[in-house]
Nucleic acid binder design. Structure first.
Lengths: 337, 337
DNA sequence: ATTTAAAGGTTAAGCGCTAAACTAACAGTA
DNA sequence: TACTGTTAGTTTAGCGCTTAACCTTTAAAT
């Protein structure tokens, strides 16, 4: 195994000089020496030892990616999480960082990981507000929270504009003539993202004089998996003509169950989703949904994080990305009555 | 930041003793001392520094998870990869290891990562045989290859029984009366998994006196995305009555495109997939497919890897897992003519 | 009474790298 | 001439942990 020491010996210089070449410390080494050392490194197949580097610098090239787990479900069975983490991974590698992917339900061991690995920074995804107190101590390194709204002093934030997303859904559905609406959340008691989407949805309905009743706001997707529960929703007196789900996955499952109950989408009931994942195109009918640009979000998150790693004095930042309506065939235009 | 030295001082013992307690070196420390030190560790919130540990041991607690990338596509947009890596991640954490998730198209920088991080082992997924020569040097640590068939001396292997999977598909479709069949691969020129599925498919058709023509074996999913190409397949003289795809994702896309062309599944054409991912349930019609147990596979892979990390002298192992037919509604029974 | 072994430690070297502090040679300048 | 600054390095002291080798004390075996 070839080390920095070996390179230094072969080049007839000190280890510091080699280190400076590797880390691109300009002005400390002559052009000529740089070239000579680089050649030797290349020819000998030298690879710096990350552990030694982390130890000496008190900071590794690792970024913790911390994902809110929900129960025992495989984290990447949620296609949004999968796609987002895939994009983050690519973005991190492109910037010379390594992702440490960590999922957690209770944030108990997360601090130990962050400290143990001397991570350079952390990205949180979808963290539930109720864990806030366990998380505060986790922001000892530059941090970007995503897909959550609570504020931690010094922590940065990237999200999508969920309020206006909800509003767009409301305006679109109401604009198509729908007046009896329902809202199915992913996990509204836990996720403040869902709460913002609902807020926007209600806001958007107001100009149309439409109010959501309490029974029309379902806090979890349990209903879409259970025919009895779903029956209760769609066979009521004031049954909804359109249902807005805060995730494509929930919308897809809803359409599946409705279909199994011989309720046609969009003929009998219209359905809208959120995210515009690839699955939205293969459902029957293709799903009308609100698109968020996951690649763009990942890029923004990584850029922001690296900026804050390089300059620890930077004031905290908050950014919301827009969403776009993608019209497919799961919403029907109602005739004026 | 509290270090092992601090703990030693507080406990009035040497660093070695604390280290022995942490690493569970039995017989070197008295029960009493163990308890005392453990208490101090707990109360002080001490977390061992992984970099220092890796450096001293010349081996980290990191396992490289190396995924075959296909073009520039987000690796986790492939739901199989997502689910598999999610399961591996969970399994690794449960065993005290950390996954380093790496995707690559050309395996160029992979060796540098393995060496740089002193990984304890590596798991490869879906590696294309043409990269074999670049990969040989990567097996300097205990390694498990998954979803590929080529042999590298000393490397372990876990996969699903693709030949019998293909055979089961053939027997099922033929048993349902289908005689004109087509096969759509994920990437048959690259993946030896696809080749085995095709081999099994052909083998399974033999007893029925059915042969696949060259035009009925499509090497990539390009056809399922392109209406013109698909038209050429399904409007031929000997057009297939059933199509077997080597991935659910391809099958789902195929059904979508057929649907858009007003060709009904399974009335006009039957479709089968492979994997049984969650998406197989939400397609219309629900997809008949071959189930592989991804959680079980991940568990087996991690167990095998850890066994080989603990005992480097172990002879190489190879295991194939079975698949199971999951009958849904995408295959129609043909009347005998 | 002497030897041996086990139990329960300690000491010290070193893993591979970085970074602060230092040095030597030289050029420009007041 | 003496001073200052720049360039291109070197020296040295760690970072936090593990591990091989060594050292006592006590108890059992001869």
């Amino acid at each position: 195994m070839v080390t920095l020491k070996d390179i230094a010996k072969k080049a007839g210089v000190s280890m510091t000089t080699v280190s400076n070449v590797i880390n691109g410390n300009q002005g400390r080494v002559s052009e000529e020496t740089v070239e000579r050392i680089k050649t030797i490194i290349r020819e000998s197949g030298y690879v710096p030892n990350q552990a030694a580097r982390s130890l000496a610098q008190r900071e590794s090239r690792i970024i913790a990616v911390i994902i809110q787990a929900v129960g025992k479900e495989n984290i990447f069975r949620n296609p949004y999480t999968a796609e987002y983490v895939g994009a983050l991974t690519a973005e991190l590698y492109q910037n010379g960082y390594y992702p440490l992917i960590r999922y957690t339900d209770d944030y108990r061991d997360v601090e130990a990981d962050l400290r143990g690995w001397n991570v350079a920074g952390a990205i949180f995804s979808g963290t539930f507000p109720r864990h806030l107190k366990n998380i505060k101590s986790l922001t000892m390194v530059p941090t970007v929270f995503t897909d959550c709204y609570f504020r931690i002093p010094g922590a940065n934030h990237v999200g999508v504009d969920d309020v206006s997303g909800g509003q767009m859904a409301a305006e679109y559905l109401a604009g198509m003539g729908h007046r009896r609406l329902a809202f199915i959340a992913n996990s509204i008691d836990e996720s403040d993202v869902d709460q913002h989407r609902l807020e926007g949805f209600r806001e958007g309905l107001k100009p149309f004089g439409v109010c959501l009743t309490d029974e029309s706001v379902l806090p979890t997707p349990a209903t879409v998996y259970d025919r009895e529960l779903l029956k209760a929703l769609v066979e009521r007196e004031d049954r909804p003509s359109a249902i807005f789900c805060t995730a494509d996955r929930v919308a897809a499952q809803l359409m599946k169950t409705l279909n199994a109950m011989n309720i046609s989408v969009p003929e009998d009931i219209s359905v809208m989703g959120f995210d515009d994942l690839p699955m939205a195109e293969i459902t029957t009918p293709p799903l009308t949904t609100l698109r968020q640009d996951i690649e763009q979000k990942a890029q923004l998150v990584v850029e922001m994080l690296i900026r804050h790693i390089r300059n620890k004095e930077l004031p905290e930042e908050r950014t919301l990305l827009g969403v776009k309506l993608v019209e497919r065939q799961s919403v029907k235009r109602l005739m004026e009555e």
